[in-house]
Write a protein that binds this DNA or RNA. Structure first.
Length: 968
RNA sequence: GCGGGGGUACCCGAGCGGUCAAAGGGGCAGGACUUAGGAUCCUGUGGUCAGUCCUUCGAGGGUUCAAAUCCCUUCCCCCGCACCA
């Protein structure tokens, strides 16, 4: 037996494919085409086994379509824009320990490592790694003639053109915005990979509502809150007596806030002027007017007020804020002290009446804050953790199920969740409130300066909220082939939800310069939306035929939109011809058939990919399909992360498992829309699966037996049935089921053929050849190697898989009958204590077949019927000559058919209607049954003469269900 | 909150109105082959039992001749939410 050693033949076939240029995409007018891409990877360092999952699916689909006779375009590129490449270079430059370890662990050579502090080198090196170490080694049928990166000059010209189109279509808007900013370094990115920050990479920008409380002098005391609706329940204010408050001038208003807040405001507002500071203690005991309600309330001391959080000015709503409730109780307890310290009338403190605003289904009384403090055992305002928990609970409950009551004026009777935004907008519109932005946690820049939120006066957005565009895109998405279907259903909602997106930024990252504003770079999501179009001209750029300098707006207008006429450009005949060729190419390949990407793209990349196509290109160029794949996780469902060492480096994995085993693993271990766990053992299992198949095929190669047998016909029909399924699954992008059919079900069919004594090597080799074709999309290396060994011509990868051949249903039913019979006998034998000495089978008597056929024909005549006239059927057969001996059995048997009659499916009806002689068929399978059961088998017709029937079993025989007697 | 998904046998998971006691893997048990096996093959893996029966698909109701699959109620779990790819 030839040893199964994938490593030996994998590189051999990769070289042959490459030498033959087998997968170059051919412009082939008249021939059907298929255009697929996977979302190009960002250059972020080494990839892991999870990335290969999606890439593999794309290759499987590309290979399948190629083997269906289509001209296939499967290009690939690199998304170098944005942070990842820069981030990696920066980390190498500062010799970040984790990064260095990770690079070395993945086998980065030291001389390369020394250069990776430079972003260009990072891009150059890793794009090489992706192609040579991953994609080629995985046998992907990518057309590398078209490879491109998003920071190449040609691509940048293309992106600029795209933005001109967006501008022309009124889809670029600008408005004020806020963004993270380091006072020392300028605009920076707050992201989880911590490129620019040393702390707070996961921080979010929270949008508070600052309510403008006023004192008698007209000074504004902004209390920033996430719950503006509670303004109706304010009973007092809290200031920290130990803090020196800062008076500032904003426009023509004077504000009083904590010094930290004054600092933050100076970035969020124009013209902020610092005035004097006032000790908190001096402010306690004063009165402020509540906005909206115009009520006067007292300022009380609150030690818990953190000057670093929000504005340092806190409004108190004791019924709905546990902190406020606890603090108010404390204050009331020490009312006398407050008098001596701050001159506050103790009676005024004690008489503060709480106001209830919100009622929920869980409300027990009119003071939910008190209820929850009692329940959790809060003793004072110092029980910080408990109060935090209480706040969370109350907030959640009241937000979800709360309804505002009569204390809330015009908003009474509305749900908190519904009215919150409206109410906030109303307040801002009326001038009693204003937005205030704050990080959810502290963020510190790499230079150790705390990061602030800075107002960007003129931020450009792509107007994804555009109604017409949204409507158009949703309409189109409905006609698209989007898998899984869950995502298809979700897509309209995602498109509705998608609002304007900031599309440019300043600071250090890679990308294309924004054409309408200097020193702004287009943001990486926005420069990767329409890009599949660029794979068409990229081939000409790569070949040196097309220069970026000539790729101006009129060029792209012509090739992508068919606008203009190159003959009028005065560029010479050669160029005109070239442009026409590129345009023809584009018209041939576009639209894109499948855009394949991971689940992380569901709410970002895919929607903008669709919307930009719909915004810019004509309707006949809009994408046809999206395929989303889920992730590979570490054992236990944990996300693969570089910080945790990642999974096995890909080159090592390839060597250990073999590429095809990995490909099969991805395709079969779980559906594409499910996270799968990376487990060595399982991958090895798939390797041994391939080895079994390898051995099976080699058996036939080494076997010269050439015995014809009835079972041969079954094999052919059964295989054809399998192949029909495989092709159907692949056409539906159900890769998992296709893999199941090819590597498991077909394997079992061949095993059964063997078991049944099939030895027709000629037939077998023919069928194996067909089988190997079906393997080629998923495990191409094994397929090529077996194809060659079995004497196939040329490359199997470029051979067509024929649409399925004929299926003889009768043959399939007959053999299925034996399978069921064997099962039943085994079932009975399993119940016996002793070893069986003989199995006697009684096939159905003819009269039962006749009765059954009569009933089936009634069903055929009226497939909707649930009942049939039993009396008529019984009568008919009772009167038939020769039926006398069965007079007692007829009604009983007819009775058993009623249930079947009601529930039979069309498929079953067809199967049951197929006629064959059961006795003859079992008799021919007798030897096989004896071998399988390891005991003698006798077969009789239940209505035969003088048959041995010691236990009267023969009466139980039914069509397709022989009676069985096992003797011990 | 908004949006989406889900609860299936020991585990992972397929099925999404009838061919369902429920695919495929894994685990476990028995057998075969073996110097041995963590290799491979076969068989079994809800209950009952000489097979066509009974009880199961988070819980409770309902529709239907027929429900894991459809409808309602309810409990629980997971994921995404933006300038970050």
């Amino acid at each position: 037996m030839t040893e199964f050693n994938p490593i030996e033949f994998e590189s051999k076939w990769q070289a042959k494919w490459s030498d033959a240029n087998a997968f170059h995409s051919d412009y082939a007018p008249g021939q059907e085409k298929f255009f697929i891409i996977f979302a190009y990877p960002g250059i972020s360092g080494y990839l892991h086994v999870g990335h290969m999952r999606g890439f593999t699916y794309a290759d499987v689909l590309a290979r399948y379509h190629r083997m269906q006779g289509r001209s296939v375009l499967f290009p690939a590129g690199f998304h170098a824009s944005g942070l990842p490449a820069t981030s990696l270079a920066k980390r190498v430059a500062r010799q970040d320990e984790k990064t260095m370890t990770y690079l070395r662990k993945n086998g980065c050579p030291e001389d390369v490592l020394a250069k990776l502090g430079d972003t260009d080198q990072v891009i150059k090196y890793f794009s090489g790694v992706y192609v040579e170490d991953y994609w080629k080694k995985f046998g992907f049928t990518i057309d590398y003639q078209r490879a491109m990166t998003t920071i190449s000059p040609g691509y940048q010209k293309f992106i600029q053109w795209q933005f001109h189109k967006l501008e022309e279509r009124n889809l670029l808007v600008h408005k004020p915005h806020v963004a993270p900013f380091c006072p020392n370094c300028g605009p920076i990115a707050v992201d989880a990979s911590m490129t620019d920050v040393s702390k707070g990479g996961n921080a979010q920008i929270l949008e508070f509502t600052a309510l403008k409380f006023k004192d008698d002098e007209g000074n504004i005391w902004p209390a920033a809150t996430l719950r503006p609706e509670t303004v109706f329940g304010v009973t007092n204010m809290w200031l920290n007596p130990n803090v020196k408050y800062q008076k500032i001038k904003i426009g023509d208003e004077t504000w009083i806030v904590s010094p930290e807040a004054a600092q933050k405001l100076s970035f969020q507002r124009d013209n902020v002027e610092m005035l004097e500071q006032i000790q908190g203690t001096d402010l306690i005991g004063g009165e402020l007017t509540v906005p909206v309600t115009e009520k006067k309330v007292l300022i009380l001391p609150g030690d818990f007020v953190d000057p670093a959080v929000a504005t340092g000015v806190v409004m108190s709503v004791p019924t709905h804020a546990p902190f406020d409730w606890a603090a108010l109780l404390d204050a009331q307890k020490v009312a006398e002290d407050l008098q001596s310290q701050y001159g506050i009338d103790p009676e005024a403190v004690r008489s503060i009446e709480v106001i209830t605003l919100i009622h929920t289904s869980k409300s027990k009384s009119d003071n939910p804050a008190r209820d929850i403090c009692d329940r959790l055992g809060v003793k004072s305002q110092t029980d910080h953790d408990l109060l935090e928990q209480a706040t969370q609970e109350i907030y959640k409950d009241e937000f979800h199920s709360g309804v505002l009551n009569d204390a809330c004026g015009e908003y009474a009777g509305t749900r908190v969740s519904q009215v919150k935004d409206t109410l906030r907008e109303d307040f801002i519109y009326k001038g009693v409130a204003t937005p205030f932005h704050e990080f959810s946690e502290q963020v510190v820049c790499r230079c150790d300066t705390p990061v602030v939120i800075k107002k960007v006066p003129k931020q450009w957005f792509i107007k994804y909220s555009d109604e017409d565009l949204t409507w158009k895109t949703k309409d189109h998405a409905e006609m698209m082939n989007i898998v899984p279907k869950e995502y298809y259903n979700e897509m309209p909602n995602v498109l509705d939800w998608f609002s304007d997106r900031a599309c440019i930024r300043q600071g250090s990252w890679l990308g294309t310069e924004f054409p309408f504003e200097e020193n702004w770079i287009i943001e990486p999501i926005s420069d990767s939306t329409l890009y599949p179009t660029y794979y068409i001209p990229s081939k000409y750029v790569n070949k040196g035929k097309l220069d970026p300098s000539e790729m101006d707006n009129r060029f792209f207008d012509y090739i992508f939109l068919g606008m203009g006429n190159p003959t009028e450009w005065g560029v010479g005949d050669d160029k005109v011809e070239l442009y026409n060729q590129i345009k023809a190419d584009f018209d041939y390949w576009y639209p894109l058939d499948i855009n394949l990407g991971g689940k992380e793209h569901k709410t970002v990349h895919f929607p903008v990919f669709l919307m930009n196509h719909c915004a810019i290109l004509p309707g006949n160029k809009w994408p046809r399909g999206i395929f989303v794949n889920w992730w590979v996780t570490m054992t236990g469902g944990e996300k693969i992360a570089k910080s945790k060492g990642g999974a096995e480096p890909i080159p090592e994995a390839i060597e250990k498992y073999g590429v095809d085993a990995m490909r099969l693993y991805y395709c079969h271990v779980g559906s594409a829309h499910l996270d799968i766990e990376w487990e060595q053992k399982i991958v090895l299992h798939y390797r041994s699966r391939l080895r079994k198949i390898w051995d099976m095929v080699h058996d036939a190669l080494e076997n010269e037996a050439d015995v014809e047998n009835e079972i041969d016909q079954w094999l052919i029909s059964k295989f054809n049935e399998h192949r029909t399924k495989v092709l159907k699954f692949l056409s539906e992008m159900d890769i998992r089921n296709a893999a199941n059919e090819v590597y498991f079900n077909i394997y079992h069919t061949f095993s059964w053929y063997n078991k049944r004594g099939g030895q027709n090597t000629k037939i077998l080799k023919k069928m194996y050849a067909e089988w190997i074709k079906t393997m080629a999309p998923i495990t191409p290396h094994v397929a090529e190697e077996l194809w060659e060994r079995i004497g196939g011509e040329g490359l199997v990868s470029t051979t067509e898989i024929p649409a399925a051949g004929e299926v003889d249903k009768k043959v399939l039913v007959q053999e299925g009958y034996v399978v069921d019979l064997l099962d039943d006998i085994r079932n009975i034998m399993g119940l016996l204590k002793d070893k069986p000495s003989k199995a006697i089978l009684y096939t159905t008597p003819q009269w039962k077949v006749d009765v059954l056929n009569e009933v089936l024909s009634i069903k055929r005549d009226d497939p909707e019927a649930k009942k049939f006239d039993m009396g008529a059927v019984i009568k008919k057969f009772m009167g038939t000559p020769g039926m006398e001996p069965y007079r007692e059995d007829i009604p009983k048997f007819v009775g058993t058919l009623t249930k079947m009659f009601a529930s039979i499916t069309p498929v079953e009806l067809e199967q049951k209607s197929i006629q064959f002689d059961e006795f003859d068929y079992i008799a021919s399978a007798k030897e096989f049954l004896e071998k399988e059961l390891e005991c003698p088998v006798e077969v009789y017709r239940a209505d035969g003469e003088d048959i041995p029937d010691p236990q009267g079993k023969s009466k139980q025989a039914q069509p397709l269900r022989p009676a069985i007697l096992v003797q011990t």
